[in-house]
Each structure stands twice: as C-alpha cells, then as structure tokens.
Write a protein that binds this DNA or RNA. Structure first.
Lengths: 180, 180
DNA sequence: AGGGGTTCTATGGGTTCCCATGGGAACCCG
DNA sequence: CGGGTTCCCATGGGAACCCATAGAACCCCT
C-alpha cells in the first residue's frame, strides 16, 4: 500500500502528524499555564480545583479511588488533598470499615468555592467539544481512541513497551483491587 | 438546533465528550509515567530526552528559542539544559553575535544517547499516528485543531479568557521579539 | 493466638514546570 | 560618552508529579 504513494502524500501525512502533535502539546501547555494563573486568581492550582470538581458528584471512599478518578498517582493526590484540607475545602476522615482508608469529601466551603470558580482551560476544552457539530465530535472521539489504540496506550494496555521483569510487578502493583 | 434533539443524542454527545477527555487524560498520564520509567532505564527524564530530540535537527540560537521549540517556559528549559550540560550531552556557549544569548547544541555524547534511546510514549504516539489510515489521520488532525479553535486555545488566541489588566502585560512580555 | 503476607497512605526524594527577579550585556538617544 | 531602557537567562520559590518506603491495619492460615 505504501509503495504507490506519491511524495506529496507522504508529506501531507507528515504534516497531519505534526499538526496532531502540536495540538496535543498546545493543550498540555495551556493546562499548565492555566494552573498557574488560577493560583494567582483564586489561590487554587489547577490540580486542586480539578480534585474539587471530581469530588462534587460524591465523596471518594479512599485515596486510591480518588487517584483513579483524577488519573494521578496516590501519593500525588494525597499531597493535593492535604492542601485542600488545610484550606478547609475538603474533609478527610478514616473510613469506618477499614481504618487504613481515608474518605475524602467536599466541605461546604469547597462547594462554595466550586460555585464561584472561574472558567478554566479544562472548561474551555469541554465547551469546545460541545460546540463541535455532532458528527465531528463523534469523529474526534473515535479518532482519539483509535490513535491511542494504534499507539498501544489504550486502556488495559501497559503504557510501557520496553520494560522488562520489574514492569510486570509494577503493573500488578498499580492495579488496585476492584472496589465492591 | 438544540431544541429538537432527542435525549439519546444528548447522551451520546456527553459520551463523546467524555471519551475525548478520557483519551486526552490517558495521553497526559502515559507521558508522565513514561518520563519516570525513562529515568530509571537510561538516567534521562522525558523532558531531558525531549530536549535532546529537539536539538537533533540543529542547535538552538538561544534559550528562548529552545523554549519555543519545546513549548515550555524559558526558565524550565534552562534548568533541563543545565542538567544535560552536566551530563555532557549538550553544549552551552555564549553567542558570538550577542553575549546575552546562549547557544545550545548536541554533543557527540548527546547524539550517541539519541541513537540508543529506547521507545518512548511520544514515539508510540507518533507511530500510532503513522499507523492510522490517511483519511482518519487527516480527520484527527483537523478534529484536534477544530477542537482547539472552538475552545479558544488555538495559536494566537490568548489561552486565558478571564484574565484582566495584568494579562495584557503578561502577554506582551511572553511574546519575545521575532528573531532575524 | 500468633505470624506472615497484603493493603493503604502519608512522607521523603528528585525532577519539571511557571512565575518573579536580579544581574549583566546590548541597544538607543540626547 | 553616558544614562536610561530593553533583552537574556540563571536562579529561587512553590506546587505537582511519580517512585520508594515505612508504619499501621487487615486478612487468612496454622
């Protein structure tokens, strides 16, 4: 199939690849810059606000669960929660069923903070998706998933292809047992 | 337009939005996890390797230029370069034409490092794009750009919609004068 | 009851990231 | 020439991120 491509098709492909990566980079960068700006404006970083948002639908039964919700590492979210606790925006209590576990919930102050939180880049991204015509939105979602699958980064796939003996162990450790 | 949508269409839209964001988050996370794994394997973090890769086509005439290439802040890339210099992987010299500037280039060791660098998640992402059929690749690139445009995050657009008086100033400062 | 293995999370370590800033170099104008 | 301004970047500060780990809690088997 590749044998009868013209140079201009290969060049066009290279351009599409470049544009996709540039778009991805632009998103990542915008999110980072926005985090700092948020901190100046409301005293909360992007990560802190994101955790608040993820707690809005309901409390988390453990730190590991919250880490899953936010797609970050347990230790990372623990630090963010600590800061939110200091600010009185979330509560952290030992679970009744298992003293090792920590339950995390929004406080009233946290809810109030969410109500007056400004527009974030993440909100913009969501609004951007909303503004897309339905067919384009569907195509984009499918395209992203196809990309991830082709790249071997889809759910269930180990994200790291070159890891050796220790990866299997790390992978097992990173899959917390499913919650009831 | 929105008035004659069925609930199932709205639900489907919500699902597409969720899938798109989940895909984006998966990418971001994979890149971060990969950075750490790289560090264990070859002693270079993702950011360090990325800078090496960006220098492969040719040296950077200044730190600001390299920051633009890597879509990071000048101060960030300065730190990364310092570490690479310590490792003898890049060279940092004052420019002849303007002593305020720093020129950054790959060393022979840096080139050798690049030759034996392992597969990274970024490489996987590129390979994933390559593996897409041309029509899907083009649609994805266009979709991402359309998304960014609709979200107000496209090039040239200020990434922050809520900034007030200081943003204009900050924006001006962040636009270095064009290089000859 | 006791012990071994597993789970949970706070904490330390190292790196990156952006913002702010200061010092030195370069530029411009009177 | 000299003073004022701008440019450039290294450096410090603070937060987030993942990895590693220690201590407490839990579970299961003998």
């Amino acid at each position: 199939m590749g044998t009868h491509r013209t140079p201009s098709a290969a060049l066009r492909r290279q351009q599409h690849i470049g544009r996709s990566l540039d778009g991805l980079r632009a998103i990542v960068r915008a999110l980072r810059v926005n985090s700092h700006a948020l901190e100046r404006r409301i005293g909360l970083s992007g990560a802190q606000l994101f955790v608040l948002q993820q707690l809005e639908p309901g409390p988390a039964g453990s730190m590991n669960e919250l880490a899953e919700r936010t797609l970050t590492h347990q230790s990372s979210v623990s630090v963010v929660v600590s800061r939110l606790v200091e600010r009185g925006l979330v509560t952290r209590t030992a679970a009744q069923t298992d003293a090792r576990r920590t339950e995390i919930a929004l406080s009233a102050r946290g809810r109030a903070m969410l109500r007056r939180a400004p527009v974030t880049v993440q909100s913009q991204l969501v609004a951007g998706l909303r503004a897309l015509p339905p067919a384009r939105l569907a195509a984009l979602a499918a395209g992203i998933e196809g990309w991830l699958r082709a790249a071997g980064i889809a759910e269930g796939n180990p994200p790291l292809l070159f890891e050796d003996a220790s990866p299997a162990k790390a992978g097992a450790k990173r899959r917390p047992r499913a919650r009831e």
